[in-house]
Every structure is written in C-alpha cells, then in structure tokens.
Design a protein around this nucleic acid. Structure first.
Lengths: 324, 324
DNA sequence: GTTTGATATACTCGAAGTGAGCAAAAGGGG
DNA sequence: CCCCTTTTGCTCACTTCGAGTATATCAAAC
C-alpha cells in the first residue's frame, strides 16, 4: 500500500534516471597491479556502460556484455562494490554543462579480476597502474611518500577530535596497524583535506598547493579506491588472489603479487608457512629459476576448502561446542 | 566518446527505471534484535520508498525522509548494503501480474540502526524479530535448529565439490568456525536448496517438504540477510554495537546485546577482558542490579580511538617498520 | 543474622598463532 | 672450488585467546 501512495511529483520536464555501470578491471602486469582505463574528454576514466533494462536481465550480464564488446577484454571474477548516487558531488560539472534537464545518473561500481592484461581492442582503452592514481597506497618501498602526506593530514585535522579519529581509523599509527583495506576511507580523507584534484574540481577551481595522484573523471577514483580496498580486504578470507595469478607460479611470484595488491612487503619465511598451512596451493614437480639464486618450485592453485577467520574487537568465534 | 555511441535501443513501449530504497532498520528489544517491517499484500516486507531524483539530492536523504515520514521512527546510523537489480528473481510475480510493460525496479538495500524501537506511527508497520525470518541464524541456545537443516543441506550438496565448498564456506564445520557474518551466503544456499519459501514462489508453486523461517515479499529477506551479515561483520572492527545500545548499560547488557546480534553466546570473563583492553567504554560510579546477584557497574560508550585488525590467510599487517 | 543462590569481577594457565631471525640447500658465474 | 643469490627449513620469544578457578557482593530465605 505504501508504494501506491507515493506517486512521484515529477518536475514539468521529465528527468530520467540512468544507471551507469562502472568497472574497475584489475590485472597484474609484472609486479604492478593495473586497472583498465579509458581516455575520455575530461581525463582518464573507468570503462562505463549504461544499463538498459530492456536488453539485460542482470547487471552482471550487462557488464560482461559491454566490456567485452568494447575492449575485447574478457571478465573473470566480478563483484559489485557500491552504488553512488549523490548529486552535487558525483559529477556536478556535467550537470551544469548540460543544463538542469539532464538525466540523473546513478552509477554502480564493480570490481573485476583477470589473470592476464589482455590487449584492449579500443585504442582509447589502456592498462594503467593502480598506484599512479594512489601513490600513497603503495608502501612497498619502505615508508613511501607517506611522511609528507601525513604531515598535511595532521595539519588538516588540527585538534578536531572527530578528524583525529578518522586519521587513526584510516592511517593507523601508534600501535595500530596500517589498515590497507581502507583505501576508500583514505581517499575520502584526502578529498576533504583537499589533497586530491577532484576536491577542487567539484567545489571551486582553486588548485591546492600540492595534489597527490592522478585525477579521474567524475567519481571514478572513488570507485577505484573502493575496488582496491575490497580486493585487499577480501584476500584475507577468500583466495581471490588466484584470480589475478597465472596458472603456474612460484611462491615468490605469489608473494610479490600479494604484496603488490596489499601495498607493502611481508616476511618471506612466515608467508610460506602461512601458505603451507592454508593448503590452497599444490606443488608441481617443475622448478624454475628466474633470479640468480636457487630454483624455485612451481605451484598451482589447488582445489581445497577455504580457511576462514576474522576478528577485531576481541570477539570469539562460534566453535560448534559453546563455552560455558 | 564511448558513452555517446551507446545510444540505447529502446523498446517501443517506454519502460522506465525505478530505484527503490529498502531499509533494514534494526533495534534491540530486550535481548532480541528486531527489524521494522511493513505489512504488505504479499506478506511482510521492509519499509520501501521510491527514489525521486528531483526531490532528493542523495539516497540517504531520501531514505531518512521517507522512513521518518512514514513511520516516524528516526534513523540513526545508516549504511548502504547492496543493489539488487536482477530480473526474473527479484520480483517475477509482480512483473507477471502487471504485464510486460512494467517499470524495471532496481532496489538499493540499506542497513540502519536505532538505539530504541520507537513506536511506528503506521499501524501496518511493526517491529519483528530477526530470527523469525532466520531461525537458523540464532544459535544462542546451543546447537539450535541446525542439525536438521544441516542434514538437508548435505543431501542437497551430495558429492558435488562446488556445493560442498559452499557449505564449508557458509556453515563452517570441521575445525572451521561458524562464519556468522555470512548470513547472506547462507540464505542463498538455503534458497538454492529450496528450503525457503521464496525459492518455490519465484520458480514454481510446488512447496517443498519443510521450509524454514518466515518469507518476505520480493527479495526483502535477502536484504535483511545482508543487513544481518554486515552488522555482524562490522562489529568486529567498528564499535557499531553502541548504535543499538542505550546510553547506559552494564557489561552483561552489552554482552547479551552482542550475543543477540552475533547469534551465539560468548565466554563472559574473556568478553570483559576484551572490552577492557579495547577502551571503548567508561565505567560510571553507578551500579544497578537487574538480576538476583551482585550489582553490576554501569558503563557508557566512551570517546576513544578504535581498535582494529582483521586476518584470515595468515597475512601480516603493515607495521610501519617493514620486516626483512 | 546466617545461609543460600545468583551474578559480577578478578586472576591463572596452557595452547596456538605470529613476528623475526639464523642457517642450510641449490643453483650460476668466475 | 669459492662467492653470490634466492629458496627452503627451522627455532624461539612473545602475544593472544580459550577456558577454567576463585573471590566479591548483593537479595532473599530461613
């Protein structure tokens, strides 16, 4: 009944809703995660398609359809991220340029993974490294560019306790670890601290003193940040890393792939111990030697059950046999 | 440029896109989590509103607007869950009933939390317990109804390794813990095993031998499952539990609130240790005694930084000082 | 007023997981 | 055969976590 009484009071000019599907298609090239980008008038953007309800039964089918048709890059693993629909922030430029009667665009972001960076058929499409857009997310070479940014963020926060909380949440520090999966939250903070070009583009034209990372059109950088964070987070409880790894790999390959996604280096021996105990890979008889050292055993992703846990506040897990 | 060439090939009859906002508003009543439901022709459903791009700048504003107007229950914490848009599964009945020229409905699900279960102004709105819809998610009283369901699920899986993997992922078992946050995945499994009424409603009218939990209209039960899982998961790394707790509470209150959400009981002494070390609450001077025993100290949520971690595969965390 | 019942609170102990490093193995190149 | 490099195996201290024992503090019963 509720629905019925909610007859929309439309404006005189019909303004249609348009659903856009945006995809952050990720693949590893060497030791660098890349995302498929498309050159647009305003700069780099993610592959984008309009969802046509008459043509497509599901979002995912629509997505696969138009990405494969446009770039001839096949999609493997696909996962929905978030739906962005705010006006005033998402693409205010476009709205203004096209006048007030423009369609309202709602964009649904997706993450997709591919084990290989297939050559796109469109020349405007191109693989670009993640960290060109998010230099602060790559901390593999020690501290990285963080010290400078951290200083600016501290200045932004001042003594505002809410802002300081957000910094602790997004940046870690003290005895808190670096929460690598909170890439979106970090981007939001960068946005509000006006350290990324989008913040100035969306509000006023005044450029800030120093801006970090390449901008993308509309809110595509937020979508990419969401994708990065989701992938990082998911790696901890699902073997998604194998969706971007080739069939055969050494443990060092696997490790550097994971490091590339996580954005920091990890302890080699402990990593191996973890991989062994997780039973997610199988050793083959082959060995290769890509470096100057001892040849490495070649592994492949194995069929197996998944290992799981996840904690934070010291909350226990249900262990079938309840405690007393 | 890409966008321009994608001029939609519309069907002769204009079929509009409609964005519906669905909300799973949760509050604790006693030791039971409840969700605000609305009685509809087809059964219980979640509060639902149509997003009007002319009227609302953001989804969240629209949501707050129509929920507060319709039920006069104020929204506190709000979080987007997922966008459902598949045809054929979501609401095939409605489509059939209304013919082929019906609008295409895309629904965005939201989770909202309230510290109190305010009386709704509409008489068709009502607070209903979570676990009426998901009896298998409540394992506080020992094993609960699981044994029966598990048997059916094993029968459904048979020897199909993919299905067995899904069971391990959703149900735990062996030495794997019960992954309480995967409520949606569990519901999907129940759906495919045809153990919930929606599965039969959506495909054919034949009712199964035994169905579990109350059905909801459309895909609302999936949205609620998503909400439950999200809240459970989020509790581990964010202090969201205080969004459903009153201002003042004892540690026992807090524990039973958490248990109610998690769906299982936890060790009391360890829980306190964890709460202490997390520094998320402050003890007041007051004490109360609601039971027959020793009076309990009254606490309140305190301002503080958040504790964080999260693991799965044995991956380490970035600790500022990189290992070698 | 002492006992009993009940719950809140404090502390202990062992198991398992994790971080960090030492050291041997297995190649290639002088 | 020695040196350099990377892979692989293993140890050890430390922290966290699960589970239990013990004590404190009240109300109500006797």
């Amino acid at each position: 009944m509720r629905q019925a009484q909610k007859v929309p009071t439309r404006s005189p000019v019909e303004r249609r809703l348009v659903i856009g599907l945006n995809i952050a298609l990720t693949a590893l090239i060497g030791d660098e995660p890349h995302v498929l980008c498309v050159k647009r008038p305003g700069g780099w953007g993610l592959p984008f398609g309009r969802f046509d309800p008459d043509e497509h039964r599901t979002f995912e089918l629509a997505l696969r359809d138009f990405v494969e048709r446009q770039t001839s890059v096949p999609l493997g693993y696909v996962e929905q991220l978030y739906t962005f629909g705010d006006r005033g922030r998402e693409a205010p430029r476009a709205s203004l340029v096209m006048g007030d009667e423009v369609d309202r665009i709602v964009s649904i972001g997706y993450l997709a993974l591919s084990p290989e960076a297939a050559e796109p058929s469109l020349e405007s499409a191109q693989w670009r490294p993640w960290y060109a857009f998010f230099p602060w997310e790559d901390r593999r070479s020690q501290g990285g560019p963080l010290p400078l940014i951290e200083e600016r963020l501290r200045a932004w926060a001042g003594t505002d306790s809410e802002r300081l909380d957000r910094l602790a949440f997004t940046q870690g520090g003290d005895d808190l670890p670096w929460p690598e999966e909170r890439a979106l939250d970090r981007f939001e903070v960068m946005y509000e601290a006006r350290l990324v070009a989008e913040a100035h583009r969306d509000r006023d034209g005044v450029e800030g003193p120093e801006l970090y990372g390449e901008a993308m059109i509309s809110d595509h950088r937020r979508i990419l940040a969401t994708a990065i964070g989701r992938l990082r987070g998911k790696m901890r409880y699902r073997p998604v890393i194998f969706q971007v790894m080739p069939d055969a790999f050494t443990l060092s390959d696997l490790q550097s792939g994971i490091e590339a996604v996580l954005g920091f280096r990890i302890h080699k021996q402990n990593f191996r111990r973890g991989v062994e105990s997780a039973h997610l890979v199988e050793k083959t008889e082959k060995t290769v030697q890509q470096t100057g050292g001892r040849p490495a055993a070649v592994y492949r992703a194995g069929a197996s059950s998944g290992v799981t846990t996840a904690l934070g506040l010291p909350l226990p897990r249900f262990k079938q046999t309840a405690p007393r």
